[in-house]
Computed example of a mutant assay.
Amino acid sequence: MRFELLEEHRGEIGPIKKACGLMKVSKSGFYEHLGRKKPNAQIGREALEGFVVEAFHRHKGRYGYRRINREPRKSGIAVSEKRVLRIMQKLGLAGKGATRKHRIQKKVEPGDPRLNLAERAFSVGGRNRLRAGGIACMPASEGRFYLAAVIDAFSRKAVGRSMSERITEKVAIDAIGQAVGREGPPDDGSLVFHDDQGAQHASRSFQRCLDSHGITRSASRPGTPLDNAVAESFSKTLKRELAEERDYGTRDEAEQDIFKHIEPYCNRMRMHSALGYMSPVEYERQYA
């Protein structure tokens, strides 16, 4: 241990003879130490630590130990989650984790007109069967603006989005329009769109938009965000990993940054635990 410490700070103490005297080690022993090769176990530990640090910063601190653990597995290197966790704790690395809140679900009273076709069954067997949407408020120095997103429940891919300074039904309709133009609805009319019963999604114009594309609407029960977990998770992750660490000067700047984050990163690179730690595009290629 003294030899390692002396090797690390050898230029800070003075002549090597003086440094060895202060550390109470022999000069010949120190030079013998320099000629030794590092044990394979130490080389492996240092290599893994370097990989963890590189992966953590490459994803800008958004990944916790579970997702970072999946990175070496892509190259055929098996590493336990506990080992990655210990390394991150040792190096003081902590992903931007979410604080989970457990809420009591409200009971559905007799005669309630709510129609929930999804029933929290978001694991579907293919694309274009179930999509979830919501509207999130995003901050900017010029004032807040609103992001409407449409997520395919099969791959968790953001297939449609729209941003506006005003929270109206138009921002929700534009997001649906982009999703239809990009992915297209199935010919048999089996596509369901699930939302949280917001005023924009409950409007007549939005319902007419769904009808024109042959899409059936499903809605969450009031006060139960878990009914729309796919869209809620997307919005919460976007705010935590992007908006909270930025100080946008203008809305245009924010819109461009959000576009770059969703398309190249969230859809093509970011691993999702619900997808077996694959990205949406990777998951679609493998299972579609």
Score class of each variant (00 low, 15 high):
Ala78Glu: 12
Arg70Pro: 00
Asn69Ile: 00
Tyr65Lys: 04
Ser80Gly: 15
Gly29Phe: 06
Arg45Leu: 14
Ile104Thr: 12
Tyr63Ala: 05
Pro39Val: 14
Ala47Met: 05
Asn128Ala: 06
Pro110Gln: 12
Gly134Asn: 01
Lys37Val: 12
Gln89Tyr: 00
Lys90Thr: 12
Lys101Met: 14
Met23Phe: 07
Lys74Asn: 06
Gly111Ile: 02
Leu22Phe: 13
Arg83Tyr: 11
Lys24Asp: 11
Ile43Gln: 10
Glu54Leu: 10
Asn40Val: 12
Pro72Lys: 11
Val124Cys: 00
Arg70Phe: 05
Val124Thr: 00
Leu48Met: 12
Gly111Cys: 02
His33Phe: 14
Glu49Tyr: 03
Met88Tyr: 03
Ala132Phe: 00
Arg62Val: 04
Arg129Gly: 13
Arg45Asp: 15
Arg36Glu: 09
Leu115Pro: 01
Ser80Trp: 11
Arg66Glu: 03
Gly125Pro: 03
Asn40Phe: 11
Ala118Asn: 01
Arg114His: 13
Lys107Glu: 09
Arg73Glu: 10
Pro39Thr: 15
Lys38Thr: 10
His102Ser: 03
Ser26Pro: 05
Asn69Pro: 00
Phe30Trp: 04
Pro110Val: 04
Glu32Asp: 13
Leu115Cys: 12
Tyr63Lys: 05
Arg58Met: 03
Gly76Val: 09
Cys20Trp: 06
Asp112Thr: 13
Ile16Leu: 07
Gly111Glu: 04
His102Ile: 12
Arg73Asp: 07
Glu71Leu: 03
Ala118Lys: 00
Arg100Glu: 12
Cys20Asp: 03
Arg58Ser: 13
Gly35Trp: 07
Ser26His: 10
Lys37Trp: 08
Gly92Ile: 09
Leu115Lys: 11
Pro110Ile: 06
Gly111Trp: 04
Arg114Glu: 07
Arg103Pro: 00
Gly61Ala: 06
Pro113Gln: 06
Arg45Tyr: 08
Ala47Pro: 01
His102Gln: 06
Ala55Asn: 06
His57Leu: 06
Gly95Phe: 02
Ser123Gly: 04
Glu32Gly: 15
Val53Asn: 05
Asp112Leu: 08
Tyr63Phe: 09
Gln42Asn: 06
Ser80Tyr: 14
Phe122Lys: 07
Gly134Arg: 02
Lys106Tyr: 11
Gly97His: 08
Ile68Cys: 01
Val79Lys: 15
Val124Ala: 00
Arg100Tyr: 12
Gly35Glu: 15
Lys37Cys: 09
Lys17Pro: 01
Glu32Lys: 07
